[in-house]
Amino acid sequence: MTLLETGYQGLFTVVPIILAFMVILCLVRAIKGPRIADRIVAVNMMGTMTMVIIAILAIKMEEGYLVDICIIYAMISFLAVTLLAKVYMGVYAEKKKKEEKENGHT
């Protein structure tokens, strides 16, 4: 193994490990986050880092098809953020309206 190959292997081994640690820290943020928006942002960050990990694996294992999963991950993460934000907004508005109704009656 030449020095160059060793460099590639080292780089492709170290960078995913660092990213994995970052993902764990994001998970801490997602668990700690006082508001729901905190958690959504943290989960979105985790998705981005996972995409980079998958892309690095695709280059390392020379399997180009793994990048497809990156694209799917990006789509699903975007969809999840928009859907969660919208659904929670709807739920919050409904709860607010119900409370107002109850207060108005009593």
């Binding site: 919208k86 659904v87 907004m89 709807g90 739920v91 508005a93 409904e94 309206k97």
Partner: peptide, 10 residues
């Protein structure tokens, strides 16, 4: 009926 599906959502 128009608002029925997304009554509480933006």
């Amino acid at each position: 009926e128009e608002e029925n599906d997304r009554l509480y959502e933006p």
